[in-house]
Design a protein around this nucleic acid. Structure first.
Lengths: 242, 242, 242, 242
DNA sequence: TATGAATGAGCCTTCATTCAT
DNA sequence: GATGAATGAAGGCTCATTCAT
């Protein structure tokens, strides 16, 4: 029902307007109360229609919720690829994706909460348009990763999907307290740190022990060479005692 | 279990035993139907008591859910620290934490789903015992990270909390399809990959400093060789000493 | 009334009509069982609607009760003032008020019992419309009393409110056994006696001032007679002149 | 059960003590919450016993309420007649009864409210001990009234029962706002006014028109007598001109 | 005598959804 | 297309009372 957006184009305008009214009201009420506590009658009142009218446009309450979230995702995707095109370099692109995701959450915590709490994890999600949109959305990151891997910038043994999980999962976990209205969210800082961590990992790169052994070996060779031919040119090395 | 069909047939039991019966039944029913669709009467029937009895032990339906999940968390925490004590080395410990978390999810996907879908994200969560247990649980990882940082094994500029978010968030995102009964979960593989990714990041390390040193050393050796025997032949190899 | 047994058989009715149906059924059920023992489902069945319909018109069970009693009060007030306008003289008006109140109780003992037992004395009563109606109702008496006082017919030192309490309280106490189905109620007799008692009090009036004056006058006449004809006979009587 | 207060005298002490504890707790809880909202478990907790124990002493919750109110009535009756014996004169005695009743209400508004709201008007009341006590209590007034009537102090045509209704009903109506915690209660003032009103009624005793006519007639007769025999002795009268 | 675990019957209420107008 | 009255199922929860221990 909601998918069939406008069959007869000559009556499309009022229909689209009605739907916008309803969806705006629904977004408000759902955001404020959550799905279960939201009532169709309140949404109807907010949209200036009666309950029955809503069922002319949406199959049921849940369809309305999904539609509201769909609109959100559509708006998020709209200029995503375009904007990304202006960002060059693996790191920058990765950071952009992370930053943008954090920003979307910060800008619409209520919708985000709805999505996390009411939609994702439910059985019908994987058959929904919302799921397809979500895949489209996350695929942007996947492509960046694949490109980076093809370019040799990323380790070839990685599971791209797992990297995606780590990024979106990490973000989601990070914003949990913010979404629960129990903490702030510093988008810039989190984006920077997450990008950094994802890129470079967490371990302190130790002075590579392997090359130390090689170094030592080379030095011994050099000493040998020096005995044969004492240093006289420009390069300095620490030499052992005689 | 459902033999007690007689009228007013008591079966006075110690408090703990009754609670175990009820909680077992509740775990089943909640797991099967989710919170909303679970009915107290079904739980009561499963436990072999009447509905009223349940309210002697639990404030309300939600309290019962939280208690069931509490018991799960308690059991997860029970031997956690002990087991971890047997694991040495930052990487191993990190991998153990990740592996164990994945394993808990794989072993109890239903409870896990309940926790994600019904509890976390609700308003009362942050005041619940469950929240305290969850903090206790995640603190194990936090301590490992802090120790690793103190030992200089981890980069000192990290946000420990963000590392935790990335790990648990990454796991959660990764298991989503499994929890939705739409995919398998390879605990070992995921643990290994996640540990690796978290530790080392995703970028292809640029030719390590060691190899840089080797290059330099080789050049020096070439120069030595040139002194002994000016270049005349085509191929060069490192030869042993006399 | 209960013909509508078909599945999903609507019988769309104007709002007022539906409410009348429901209130009639409610009045019956409440009267028969009292508030607590009355069940919404029984009321709904009696009204030929389903339970949910009742909640379209009334907030809750109690609101329904209050509405039922409101209607009663409204009907009592409807022609009250008009009828009273046809009654002249303080005593007659007072008697009419008392008589009418007794009559209302006799005509609707069930509603009256409901009002006394379930509403008056509860916390929400003083905020209810019913309370306002009750004040309106009793104010009719108050005005009569005030008028009587202004006209000098009533003692000026009276507390009007206390007179009202004595009248309505007296009536209420008097009808208690009748309401408890343990006695009869003779409206005419009670109205007459109460009016009389309220008006004149209970004490035996000492020989009225008028008779005192008569006594004195007779004595004076005797003295006049003595002057004309000094006492010589035994018995004295008042004799005419000449 | 509660009526059989102490069969075996050797275990009476502890039994009586227990009952006192329970009744004290019950009085508190009933007073605070009313009958319906009072829970046996709260009463039990307040008395330091378990629910089951209460049923050893009282048949059921209502029996406990009636017992609590019985104790109150017993205490009210205890010294009633004695005190009244010290009051002489119909008016004084009547005022004492009214005053004492008002005072009892003021001292125990909660118990009074319970009695009015929960007991009186219920079906079992007329069979209860409480009813017998109440009759005993009101009979004190009835006797006063009968005595007053026999002594000629009260009008012989009164319905004693109706006078009682007017007094107790008037009091009850008057204290209603106080019991609803919405007004104060001035015992002395109310007692005085009510006594006065009951005794003397509300009408302004008019200068008896009948005796005025007689007076005038007598005066004419006196003027006749004066013409026959002009005034010369000590008694003064207001005489007309001429 | 005291305990206190267990009983068990019901009712109010909600609200998404339908469909006659 | 819009209306909005009516549906109707479903379930959490309470608490006085009982009775085995």
């Amino acid at each position: 029902m909601s998918e069939a957006a406008g069959k007869r184009s000559f009556s499309r305008r009022p229909r689209a307007e009605r739907m916008e009214q309803i969806e705006a009201a629904a977004r408000d009420v759902f955001s404020r109360n959550g799905f279960a506590a939201a009532s169709i009658s309140e949404i109807a009142a907010g949209a200036g229609v009666v309950e029955g009218t809503i069922y002319k446009y949406y199959e049921n309450k849940r369809d309305l919720l999904l539609t509201v979230l769909q609109r959100w995702y559509e708006s998020m995707i709209a200029d995503y690829v375009d904007q990304l095109a202006g960002v060059a370099g693996l790191r920058n692109r990765l950071r952009f994706v992370i930053w943008r995701h954090l920003k979307s959450i910060k800008d619409n915590p209520d919708l985000c909460r709805l999505f996390y709490a009411e939609v994702r994890g439910s059985d019908d999600y994987y058959e929904s348009t919302l799921y397809r949109l979500n895949r489209e959305y996350t695929n942007v990151l996947m492509r960046i990763l694949r490109d980076g891997m093809a370019a040799g910038e990323l380790r070839p043994d990685l599971s791209i999907a797992l990297v995606r999980d780590m990024i979106f999962g990490g973000i989601e976990h990070h914003v949990a307290t913010f979404l629960a209205r129990r903490g702030e969210l510093d988008v810039e800082r989190a984006a920077e740190q997450l990008t950094d961590m994802v890129m470079a990992g967490i371990v302190q790169p130790p002075p590579a022990p392997a090359s130390l052994g090689l170094e030592a070996a080379v030095r011994r060779l050099e000493r040998v060479a020096e005995r044969l031919d004492p240093p006289a040119r420009g390069e300095q090395q620490d030499t052992g005692p005689c």
